[in-house]
């Protein structure tokens, strides 16, 4: 066991994955530089340039090549430098990666992983700071997962690589180096599609994922100190979605707050709310609350902290559900 942050845990997972000769990393500056966030640091030196490939800036080309490798029996892992840089690859992801299994009646599959750092944190606005997970969730055929801890980061990346379907693997930029945790040295898997039940409570359910889990956990601490019994769920996986754990929690507490960093309208939180009202409406004691970013472009650094939902906003939303 070693105490690792998320970036280090991902690096350990990639290093372990590369022991399989079918695994290839592709991306801009992933080799010599070790990636803009240094997640692939040292892997070129260890596994060589046939396996860790510094590509041109050409996201469509990177994902297209990864698709072909995957169809050809390899297990490629493509890195997009930032969420906004994945849009040039959008055509490949939506039209081909997500659909080849269905289109070919299962004759071809593209089991690949596309790693995308996402969310605010470096203060550079727009492309470098956004959370566009809902766009990928709307593409049937790709899984979308998002770890929030070093342990999950390693275990979910290895699980994503084992998965027979393509996986969009979102990495919260703000959390890369902000939390450390004991991570086993050996390879292990955290199954995709299973949420993490972080805290058991009776009064209110806080449901979040990825970059927002730090705020969600901090809000839970504050509420717990006030005597509120808080249930906390880290979804970890948006597709497939662990509806069962969420509905069970809603039925037990009757009060639900869903937290996402992305803009508010038609975001993933809206899907969670819809499922809660479909399956747990008669258990609810209060309207379901959403705490989200705003329906705007992610702003520059000074205003960024106002865009990202704060602990105070999460606490306030929970208190609203608890009002008599």
């Amino acid at each position: 066991m070693a105490e690792l942050n998320i970036a280090q845990a991902l690096n350990a997972a990639l290093s372990s994955a590369l022991e399989d000769d079918r695994v290839v990393l592709l991306g801009e500056d992933v080799g010599t530089t070790g990636g803009v966030f240094r997640v692939t640091d040292g892997l070129l030196q260890k596994y060589g340039p046939d396996r860790v490939i510094d590509t041109p800036v050409a996201e469509s080309g990177i994902v297209g090549a990864a698709f072909g490798m995957a169809v050809g029996g390899m297990r490629p892992i493509a890195e997009m430098q930032f969420m906004g840089f994945s849009y040039p690859a959008f055509d490949q992801i939506i039209n081909h990666v997500a659909r080849i299994r269905n289109r070919s009646q299962g004759r071809f599959t593209a089991p690949l992983v596309i790693r995308i750092p996402y969310g605010a944190g470096i203060g550079a606005a727009e492309h470098h700071s956004e959370s566009a997970e809902a766009i990928y969730v709307q593409a049937p055929g790709v899984k979308v997962v998002v770890p929030a801890t070093p342990y999950d980061a390693k275990g979910m990346l290895l699980a994503a690589l084992d998965d027979p379907d393509p996986v969009i693997f979102l990495e919260p930029i703000r959390l890369y180096r902000s939390i450390k945790q004991e991570v086993p040295d050996e390879a292990y898997r955290v199954p995709l599609g299973v949420a993490a039940h972080l805290r058991q409570g009776r009064d209110v359910s806080l449901i979040g994922y990825g970059s927002m889990m730090r705020e969600v956990n901090a809000a839970a601490d504050i509420l717990a100190a006030e005597g509120v019994s808080v249930d906390v769920i880290d979804l970890r996986s948006l597709v497939p979605f662990d509806a069962e754990m969420v509905i069970d929690s809603a039925q037990r507490t009757g009060r639900v707050v869903v937290v996402q960093e992305a803009p508010r309208s038609a975001g993933f939180a809206a899907e969670v709310v819809a499922q809660v009202q479909e399956k747990a409406l008669y258990s609810l004691n209060a309207p379901v609350e959403r705490v989200t970013g705003y329906d705007i472009v992610v702003p520059l650094r000074r205003a960024e902290k106002h865009f990202v939902p704060s602990v105070a906003r999460v606490v306030a939303a929970a208190r609203r559900t608890l009002e008599p």
């Binding site: 080799g31 530089t33 510094d54 590509t55 041109p56 800036v57």
Partner: peptide, 11 residues
């Protein structure tokens, strides 16, 4: 240089 990578290596 393309960011950190010599352009001739990838062109």
């Amino acid at each position: 240089y393309m960011e950190y990578t010599p352009i001739d290596l990838i062109t």
